[in-house]
């Protein structure tokens, strides 16, 4: 089962429709069981959860930056995919610093050599992704960069921990790049050892 985690400001529950429901829909389309939960409601990760997806939120919502490190998510041994704000807290909890970086709209992301050979992004060279953030996160040394923005300022957009099965994607793959979420979920369920 995939645990889909909402990290948006709980006082604006409408954000669930925009940032969590599209991810849920993608997982449901490939007929994989899931459970959705707001991060503030997680006491313990259920035993039958095989992977976690931390969803993003809207550009004005900075509530997630105040979320304390979540011991259960940090300690989770299975694959985790952090999307946008979800990537930021995932890497922040591994030593990265969240800093200002504004991007809105479609951008090109060029894959690095590691990105071209990673099981999630293999077969791609450049990805056109939808960005919607005013923050990014410095990449800790224990993470590999799989893709960077193809621009004057190279912002890491796809990263992977080199010591566990954790991924971060700064753009929103649910927009025009559903395949990233599909591949993550399918590989999590079918091919855990090779991820």
């Amino acid at each position: 089962m995939i645990l889909v985690v909402d990290i948006s400001d709980p006082s604006v529950s409408l954000l669930f429709d925009e940032f969590v429901l599209p991810v849920i829909r993608i997982i449901q389309q490939i007929q994989v069981e899931l459970l959705d939960v707001h991060i503030s409601k997680i006491n313990k990760i259920p035993d039958d959860v095989s992977a976690i997806i931390l969803c993003g939120t809207c550009i004005a919502d900075l509530w997630y930056t105040k979320i304390p490190s979540h011991i259960d998510i940090i300690g989770f041994k299975g694959p985790v995919l952090g999307i946008c704000a979800g990537m930021q807290i995932l890497l922040r909890d591994d030593g990265g610093e969240i800093v200002p970086a504004l991007e809105i709209g479609m951008i090109n992301i060029r894959l690095t050599d590691k990105g071209k050979s990673d099981p999630i992004t293999t077969g791609k060279d450049i990805i056109s992704g939808y960005s919607l953030h005013q923050k990014m996160v410095h990449i800790p040394e224990s993470w590999d960069i799989l893709g960077v923005s193809d621009d004057l300022i190279k912002i890491p957009h796809i990263v992977r921990s080199n010591c566990n099965k954790k991924y971060g994607v700064l753009f929103h793959p649910e927009v025009r790049n559903e395949w990233i979420i599909e591949r993550f979920v399918q590989k999590c369920l079918k091919n855990l050892e090779n991820l």
Binding site: V12, D17, R25, I59
Partner: peptide, 27 residues
């Protein structure tokens, strides 16, 4: 429509407003 959404997002960001699109990518 990314064309519409990103333009409205820019305006809202520049004016310090939240931008909410509850039907985004809906079924």
């Amino acid at each position: 429509s990314v064309y519409q959404a990103s333009r409205i997002e820019w305006i809202c960001h520049n004016l310090g407003l939240w931008c909410l699109s509850p039907l985004w990518l809906c079924n």
